[in-house]
Computed example of a mutant assay.
Amino acid sequence: MGWDKREAKRVHFDHERRAALLATDGTWRRECILVDVSESGARLRIDGSPDVLGAREFFLLLSPNGLVFRRCELVRLDGSEVGIHFLSPDGSRPSSMTGEKK
């Protein structure tokens, strides 16, 4: 899947939006820039090595104090750019992202 083939409408930012990735167990943290975001996921540019993303699940911290966050899963890694899907708190994909009708 290419960066421009996501089904959900994306929002691009005119100014740099800083965020951070945090391991679900808290063992690592990577600063990142939010490139674009949609209802189902986001594209990020990470600072530092992407090696820690081998875990595939992590949190995206959207506020400096960590009170605003989303649980995520790695979908695509291309150099320093990362594609992620947002997960429900229980670790599953929300029904709106799996194609199920309510």
Rank of each mutant, 00 (worst) to 15 (best):
V11M: 12
A23R: 01
E16M: 11
F69I: 03
E16W: 02
P64R: 12
L53F: 04
D4N: 15
F59R: 05
R70Q: 04
D78A: 13
G48S: 08
D25W: 04
R45L: 09
V68I: 10
V82T: 00
I84H: 00
P89C: 10
R30M: 07
G79H: 09
I84G: 00
P64S: 11
T24I: 13
L22H: 01
F58M: 05
E39L: 15
G91R: 07
S40A: 15
F58E: 01
P50C: 06
V75L: 09
G2K: 14
D51F: 09
D36N: 15
A55C: 12
I33L: 10
D47M: 11
G26V: 07
K102T: 14
W3E: 14
A20Y: 03
V68E: 08
P64T: 11
V11N: 07
V82P: 00
C32G: 05
M97H: 12
G48P: 05
A19P: 01
L53K: 02
E7S: 12
K9T: 14
S63F: 07
H85Y: 13
P50N: 09
G54L: 10
A8H: 15
K5P: 02
S49E: 10
R45N: 08
S80P: 07
E7D: 12
E81W: 03
H85I: 06
T98N: 05
R93A: 11
G66E: 10
